[in-house]
């Protein structure tokens, strides 16, 4: 049997597995090796039950009070304790993954690869560069590969393992000290909408919305009629129309819904970087020359203040 690969899981604020894990497992499956998953945190019993039903061979658990808050520094220390066992270490290219994986790589003197969208072979990966204008195929010459995964680019590995998943509790000689204190967390309420990362439908607004009030008043009901999530352009976030975690694009979130509706968004390359993988893109914009129409499957030229309420009404009363 070849050397196994390790996938480091990320937990939601409620202590459950993030759905993105299944997509990282999808990427790991392309490596044709045993997959192990590592859970890091404190008081993990519920999530362990969930994780033991994943299609993997082994679950590793690092459970310690010093790990209650996910910090890059402590996560790195834990993964380092077992990293030598693996040919590949994979995690989502999320805010957390981006925080700790480069730290681990530097400490182990390994050049890492960020944000892959395809695996050509166990040492060759495809990753977007220049806001996704180009894709680079990169071969990693390191004996061990540390890779962060763009989860929207990989199909989730569904189902459960046919064999029982073995469990290993890690006991470190030195549990990490906590060098950083997290003194506040502000997660904005989801208003009953799906998370932007996994939504099948995303309604995104830009500068054209004009105000925070209009943003919610116009786009909220449309998103709800479609059971979708809200997204935003950088301009909309900078102007305070929408919270930062809704920013879609090169330096925000990458989404891959079945339906993406861009409202009052011009379609700057930095924004398009986040929506290239959407199945269907709809653009609503008053400027017929807006670049968003260049990528839209269906474009509707006009004033969003008229079009959006009509669209919402038609969806509610077909």
């Amino acid at each position: 049997m070849s050397t196994p690969v390790l996938v480091v899981a990320e937990l939601t604020s409620d202590g459950l597995l993030k759905p993105a894990l299944r997509s990282v497992l999808g990427a790991a499956a392309a490596l044709n090796a045993e997959i192990h998953v590592l859970l890091i945190g404190h008081q993990l019993e519920t999530v362990i039950d969930e994780a033991l039903r994943l299609p993997i061979t082994r679950l590793l658990v690092a459970d310690h009070p010093s790990l209650a808050v996910p910090l890059a520094e402590t996560t790195t220390t834990v993964v380092r304790a077992i990293s030598q066992r693996y040919s590949h270490i994979l995690t989502a290219a999320s805010a957390q993954g981006k925080g700790w994986l480069p730290r681990l790589a530097a400490l182990e003197d390994v050049a890492m690869i960020s944000d892959i969208v395809a695996i050509e072979s166990p040492d060759t990966f495809v990753r977007p560069i220049y806001a996704g204008s180009l894709w680079a195929t990169v071969r990693c010459l390191e004996p061990r590969k540390f890779v962060s995964v763009r989860v929207t680019a990989f199909s989730p590995l569904n189902g459960a393992s046919s064999e029982p998943v073995s469990r290993e509790n890690l006991s470190l000689d030195d549990w990490p000290a906590v060098p950083v204190i997290r003194s506040a967390v502000h997660e904005h309420p989801d208003e009953g909408r799906p998370a932007l990362e996994n939504a099948r439908t995303v309604v995104s607004g830009g500068r054209g919305l004009g105000s925070a009030e209009q943003f919610e008043a116009l786009l909220g009901p449309l998103a709800d009629a479609l059971h979708g999530a809200l997204g935003a352009s950088r301009a909309a976030v900078d102007l305070g129309y929408a919270p930062n975690d809704l920013q879609v694009g090169q330096t925000g979130k990458v989404v891959a819904p079945d339906l993406y509706i861009a409202v009052g968004i011009s379609g700057a390359i930095q924004h398009l970087a986040g929506i290239q993988a959407a199945k269907v893109i709809v653009a609503i914009n008053k400027d017929p020359d807006a670049p968003i129409f260049g990528v839209a499957d269906y474009g509707l030229v006009g004033d969003l203040h008229e079009i959006v309420p009509q669209l919402t009404a038609s969806l509610k009363n077909p």
Binding site: G132, V138, Y298
Partner: peptide
């Protein structure tokens, strides 16, 4: 020492061109 080798840089797959619609009814 280089540990990463760029084998290829290329444009990503392009999206098929879309169409303009004239009304909300047509769009839906």
């Amino acid at each position: 020492t280089a540990r990463l080798q760029t084998l290829r840089v290329a444009e990503p797959p392009v999206r098929a061109p879309g169409i303009r619609v004239n009304s909300v009814e047509q769009l839906l």
